[in-house]
Design a protein around this nucleic acid. Structure first.
Lengths: 154, 154
DNA sequence: GCATGTTTTCAGTATTGCCTGAATCCATTG
DNA sequence: CAATGGATTCAGGCAATACTGAAAACATGC
């Protein structure tokens, strides 16, 4: 099913938002389209056609989405075509994975101990304290988030 | 004061980390250097010299840091040269400003109401719920973070 | 207000990374 | 196991962006 005007506008809005943070245009457009397309499951050919992207681009960017855990593939028996859809709970998964990045920031701060400056060493230690704080707070926050989700779904 | 080997290695580590998220190499190197240089206050010429960057690059990227609130300028009386340093609490400020991005995500979800798909509408609403949750949780989290900071500083 | 040194601007260059399209690879069905 | 059609790969073109270097603009101290 091709896009109507309102849908096109929304895909564009999503694309504009995410390209602001450095993601590729095609990557963001695919994400936006997978949020609102019907049915939710789409083939690569359909996505390429609806968004006016080449097969290669869709293949590459879709894999990126899959690796990031935002999109999953679904197999339909009796049809050799693979279908792709936004993963249920995709947004929550992204937030949960934030913990890894927090930890990486902590590592970066700790690596700075070797070159800790005499003058205002808190330039480095502050970052470490921050990472520690979030590493502690994030898991319970994620639990509360999940609880909230259950409530909404139930 | 020029960099020694350990410092060079650390600047490189910071640069590698941040370029992974799409920032310019020079931008990240300046950030890394401002975290560990002595004294903490540096002139554009010193930064350019220490990092082997052109005057133009330092001027541009440094302004970016200032606009993002990571770096501030300090004026020294009797010296016409401007000095730059990592802003105290810079990392905390970045975390605090995250709230704006959460709100923007919420807006994006709400804009999706106009094209809400019949099939699995939660693809859009889920994002809105998530943004609402974080918009509620973020301010108290920031307060706890600040309290933590005070404790460490005191 | 002038001289001096610093910062900014900007045109040109290099680099990076996206996107395309066609050829190749692969999986599935009958 | 052959035939069919979807998915992936990759070389090449292109657009966007980073960086340089020098000239212009600016600010400060004298």
């Amino acid at each position: 099913m091709p896009m109507d005007d309102a849908q096109h506008e929304y895909v564009d809005k999503v694309a504009t938002f995410f390209t602001m943070f450095g993601s590729a245009r095609a990557w963001a457009e695919i994400l936006g389209w997978l949020m609102i397309c019907e049915p939710a499951e789409q083939t690569q050919a359909e996505i390429a056609d609806d968004l006016g992207l080449s097969a290669g681009t869709v293949s590459t960017q879709l894999r990126s989405h899959v690796q990031l855990g935002m999109v999953e593939q679904v197999r339909v028996r009796g049809d050799r075509t693979q279908r792709y859809r936004l993963r249920p709970g995709a947004w929550y998964a992204v937030m949960a994975s934030e913990l890894e990045r927090i930890r990486a920031l902590g590592e970066l701060a700790r690596a700075g101990d070797l070159v800790l400056p005499r003058d205002r060493p808190e330039r480095v230690t502050e970052l470490g304290d921050l990472a520690d704080f979030f590493a502690r707070e994030w898991p319970p926050l994620m639990e509360r988030m999940t609880a909230e989700l259950e409530k909404g779904t139930a």
